[in-house]
Write a protein that binds this DNA or RNA. Structure first.
Lengths: 219, 219
DNA sequence: CTATTTCTTAACTATTTCTTAACAACTTTC
DNA sequence: GAAAGTTGTTAAGAAATAGTTAAGAAATAG
């Protein structure tokens, strides 16, 4: 069950929001000021924050700046674009104006709880290439390629860091099972084998070599 | 530089959106139907999709269902909560109603691009020249130039110290791999090769020589 | 224990990058 | 404006790295 922290000093609106969320099976925690909310954040593992901008003591922007890695939906009576923009740029993930529609509030809550960091994605995607982390298979154009353990490890590393060079030593570290007894030669063979498998069903080049450094999957 | 795919069949709105995004230094790709968009997604590595709901051939919901792992902002003339809710629940990440405010559009685009994975691109920028330190590529006018190890090292040094002369001996030190056996002649060739690569896609002169001292990148 | 798959090694080829060298072009100095 | 010094360009060969293949070793599955 997802935990949502509601930060709102107006009791009526607070209760309204809580009712909506609890009816949708979320666990709701309550804070009536920014400082109180920060205290709760230290103790609890919160998945999402609903924040009213006009709080006693601390401004909404100040509060947003102190929160890291938790999505924040601002619920505010301010309707101008300037307000929305400044809040969104300062770190909020969404902005809903009062009065709000309860179903829209719920939908936007679901969007935030459905992010990559919250849902462990089983598929790594790059262009038309999918690496399924359940069955360790690679799909290109819906065609399946079975990978060996090391081939999977190499591709996963590259797909986790697209448009980034992964050094040969990093890859070697990955594939050497504690022993550290495999060398660069071995890595070259693995890369070659992966490319051969890919080439059998697609004409695209996915793995690029970066001369003297390592490999990357890149535009 | 982030790639945004705009899916919209109305030419005027399409051009307006493209203009806004390009002014904000995003690379914009265009699709005028859902099927066209899906084709582009297979080839290109898109960071974000801006989608008009009313498309020829395929409904917005059908399109959204086919896209995985790429955030979608729906830009629609439909303003009812029901419309918003159904789209958000079917997989879109945000919903903007027409007519929209350009700064709010940009802010919401930034929110979607501000994920953990996207936030760690390290780029050295100079005028319209971007040296991406993740993939060691140089971009001028969105065109990619691949650099060799030494070319990258030289350009990085120059871009780290703009408007400043880097001495030839400093550069030699950089590029000589322990051996210290390369000479000034070699450096000249490298500089020449970098300039040749840049000249192939831009008429600007970036690297200036400082007679008797070294080189600089300068206004 | 055997059969199969996967990994590593080694020899070899192919490719890319770097250096060298010769020469052309440009600056400075006298 | 000629000489000396410096920079720029080009091409070719050297050096470094990447890629391929096949065979045997190691690991895994049956």
């Amino acid at each position: 069950m997802k935990k949502i922290l509601v930060v709102e000093d107006n009791i009526d609106i607070h209760n309204l929001i809580r009712e909506i969320l609890e009816k949708a099976q979320y666990q709701v925690l309550n804070a009536y000021s920014g400082t109180e909310a920060l205290m709760i954040l230290e103790k609890e593992n919160i998945d999402l924050i609903l924040l009213d901008l006009m709080l006693p003591g601390m401004t909404g922007e100040e509060f947003i700046a102190k929160v890291k890695n938790i999505p924040i939906i601002v619920v505010s009576a301010k309707t101008t674009s300037e307000d929305k923009v400044s809040v969104l740029l300062s770190g909020a993930s969404d902005y809903i104006t009062k009065p709000f529609d309860s179903s829209e509030l719920l939908a936007r809550v679901k969007v935030q709880l459905r992010t990559i960091r919250n849902s462990n994605t089983i598929e790594l995607k790059y262009k038309d290439m999918f690496l399924n982390q359940n069955n360790r298979c690679l799909f290109i154009n819906n065609q399946k390629i079975t990978l060996t353990k090391t081939e999977y490890a190499i591709l996963k590393q590259l797909l986790l860091n697209p448009n980034q060079v992964t050094t040969k030593s990093k890859l070697l570290e990955l594939i050497s099972n504690d022993t550290l007894d495999c060398d660069e030669n071995s890595l070259k063979v693995h890369i070659s084998n992966i490319r051969k498998k890919i080439k059998s069903i697609s004409s695209n080049e996915y793995i690029e070599s970066v001369w003297g450094i390592g490999f990357k999957i890149c535009d």
